[in-house]
Nucleic acid binder design. Structure first.
Lengths: 211, 211
DNA sequence: CGCGGCCTCTCCCGGATGGGAGAGGCCGCG
DNA sequence: CGCGGCCTCTCCCATCCGGGAGAGGCCGCG
């Protein structure tokens, strides 16, 4: 039947570690129903190769040079709103998961997943079915209940995480120290933290800040 | 000639990501002069398999379940002081590098290294020659110049990083708040930080604390 | 238009934090 | 034994931080 065309699932891999790309490529190419058509080592290349090859699935690492995984998701979904993207990364902070999925990624799995799970995730996403392991999905739902930070608060949070004082933060953002304190207090409330240092710890765990 | 025995380099891979192990295994087994004899997904397995197979080289990730890479290095060097260990990880904090090398690891490379470099590192280490890329070596040397924290200071630092107050830290370590403050001040001085939050940022960057 | 969210700024105040200085007890090393 | 490092504890003090409350301006959305 026409429905049973034996056309292989065309996959692009985007990860900055050659070793990981090799591992995935070997796994994928070993399957009779899929093949790797391109590999990218950074975000810009991922976007360019997506446009060029229009694959059935693109497997994306979140942390990449030049343009991170989330930015790639956004850009690719602009180009093709029907794109099927599978996030595969080591990071399991609520924020990362939530952001990627809400921007249109179809699946999200962790790098320590066993081989069969990775392959079934690729197949699911290639058929436009969402794939998310239960633990990952649970985190995304948790995130829904938590208050989100505003743009400005994220600016401040980043500086707080670098260890800057309120005065220093104010200078760098060209606002008064009082305003910086207001933002910090708001951050503490939203993250349910008692001190700025605890706020940094919480933000880190949730994936609100990197490094 | 006897010197040209075609015995393959026997390699053990230890990494908690199946994908990475696959990638490395594929690379290694493709080489005519080396072969993977075992794979471990956690630290305990790595030690057990090392004892069992006595490989020429063991490639180790630092972050692993049950027993981290550094602990594996220590244990294996106890068992066999001539063991040839190659650390292959994503972390490039001074402290990690310094600790591993000073405990006897023969090489240290990053996961984003190109394939040829990884293979030549394995060959080098298998011949008992140290392998360290220049940037990594530079970090280890930097570390030499920096004051190191005492055990107690590391205990305190960990709690500081969790956002605990001096009073809280004191309670948990069963010391007075004054003593906790003394330790914190000493940490600030050694890490050249102005505030506890900056100290956490610096400590994180150096690999003194995890998460 | 009016409501609400966001960013900005202000004032007050108690408690936490960081800087400086000193000191006693313990332990290992030469 | 004596020195030095580490852990412990103490005192003082200026500054920073966090909690509470309020308010004006801007902008988007209904």
């Amino acid at each position: 039947m026409a429905a049973e065309m034996h056309k292989k699932i065309r996959v692009i891999l985007a990860d900055d570690h050659p070793v990981v790309r090799d591992g995935l490529a070997a796994m994928v190419n070993q399957q009779p129903d899929m093949e790797v058509v391109a590999e990218a080592g950074d975000g810009d290349a991922a976007v360019a190769l997506y446009e060029q090859h229009q694959p059935d699935v693109m497997v994306l690492d979140l942390r990449m040079p030049k343009r991170d995984g989330l930015a790639v998701v956004q850009r690719v979904m602009e180009i093709n709103p029907k794109a099927r993207l599978l996030i595969m990364t080591t990071y399991d902070g609520d924020e990362d998961i939530f952001q990627c999925l809400s921007h249109g990624a179809k699946g999200y799995i962790l790098k320590d997943a066993p081989r069969p799970e990775i392959l079934s995730a690729i197949r699911a996403v290639s058929e436009d079915r969402p794939y998310t392991s239960s633990t990952v999905a649970a985190k995304a739902l948790q995130r829904l209940a938590k208050p989100s930070l505003t743009e400005r608060e994220l600016d401040v949070l980043e500086l707080v995480a670098q260890g800057r004082s309120n005065k220093d933060i104010a200078r760098r953002l060209s606002i008064t120290e009082g305003t910086a304190k207001t933002h910090v207090k708001s951050i503490l409330t939203k993250l349910d933290a008692i001190s700025r240092t605890e706020a940094v710890a919480v933000a880190h765990k949730r994936g609100l800040i990197r490094l």
